[in-house]
Simulated assay, not measured.
Amino acid sequence: MMKISVVVPAYNEADIIEETLLTLRKQSWVHEIITVNDGSTDATGELCANLSNIAIQLERNRGKGEALQIGWEQASGDIIVCLDADLGESVKEAQPLIEPFESDFIDVVIGRLPQQKVRGLGFVKERAKRLIYKKTGHWISAPLSGQRAFRKKWLATLMKNQYQGYGIETAMLLDLLEAGATVIEVDTFITHRATGKNLAGFLHRGKQWLELEKSVWRGLE
């Protein structure tokens, strides 16, 4: 039987992370919950400490990339699942991420989320798709999805580089594909807060784009 470790990075998610973690604790396929409180200034850290098997508390905000890598190092499972903190009750829909690992040749599974009514312009996603295709020849339809799983044997590959914040999803895919990992995508019913077409949304996507470029730019342009 495969042991499943779930790693949840969190920054100021006190309004929803309790629901996310309580739902995760009820899932029979989840054997270990590791949270990384990324320097939150609200009650996120306390909630993580109360509801996780391992709760890592970072004193300052170090970004999603570094937070995930710190969490991965503590995982004892055969499969490491990455899930966002703001999934709430829909986190129970993450089980399709682990089902493909019954096949030995599958190394990485990415969860595609349903389309949401409120969403951004998609330029960061398209940029990520093009970067991955140009570098590896693989077309990934959901390169920015934070809902993904991989076999622990690939951890050494994923710890060779330090990932920049929100650039981690694209950068880790590049590293895994270049190392020969077999990556597939599956549809899920996971939902989370979408980034809208307002100032906050544009600022978020701008930061996401900058961190993506910092993580993956390797003389491609």
Rank of each mutant, 00 (worst) to 15 (best):
10 A>S: 10
165 G>N: 04
57 Q>G: 01
100 P>K: 00
131 L>P: 08
147 Q>I: 08
85 A>L: 01
57 Q>C: 09
221 E>N: 08
189 F>Q: 08
46 E>S: 15
204 H>P: 08
94 A>I: 10
85 A>S: 11
140 I>H: 02
6 V>L: 03
182 T>Y: 05
212 L>M: 13
158 L>G: 15
125 K>N: 01
160 K>Q: 11
131 L>A: 07
155 L>P: 03
92 K>P: 00
165 G>T: 13
29 W>E: 02
123 F>T: 13
134 K>R: 11
138 H>M: 03
147 Q>N: 09
84 D>G: 11
104 D>I: 04
52 S>G: 00
152 K>A: 11
68 L>F: 04
29 W>I: 02
119 R>T: 14
29 W>S: 02
173 L>H: 04
66 E>V: 09
94 A>D: 03
116 Q>L: 15
66 E>C: 14
52 S>R: 08
177 L>E: 13
87 L>V: 02
200 A>Q: 09
146 G>Y: 03
94 A>T: 00
212 L>T: 07
161 N>R: 14
30 V>C: 13
75 A>C: 07
109 V>D: 14
201 G>P: 01
58 L>H: 11
20 T>P: 01
168 I>K: 06
210 L>W: 07
130 R>E: 05
96 P>M: 07
175 D>I: 04
37 N>P: 04
129 K>V: 15
198 N>M: 09
107 D>P: 11
196 G>T: 02
94 A>G: 03
121 L>C: 10
170 T>W: 07
202 F>V: 10
29 W>K: 00
98 I>G: 00
217 W>C: 08
20 T>W: 03
112 R>Y: 05
40 S>F: 08
90 S>D: 06
77 G>Q: 09
151 R>T: 11
26 K>S: 14
209 W>Y: 15
213 E>D: 09
135 K>I: 15
162 Q>C: 07
118 V>D: 08
159 M>R: 05
103 S>W: 13
165 G>S: 13
94 A>R: 07
73 E>I: 14
132 I>Q: 02
215 S>Y: 02
173 L>M: 14
208 Q>G: 10
6 V>E: 00
2 M>G: 02
201 G>S: 04
219 G>V: 01
46 E>M: 02
116 Q>E: 15
31 H>G: 11
52 S>F: 00
161 N>V: 05
157 T>N: 07
154 W>N: 01
164 Q>C: 11
68 L>D: 04
176 L>E: 05
105 F>E: 10
59 E>R: 09
127 R>I: 06
56 I>D: 01
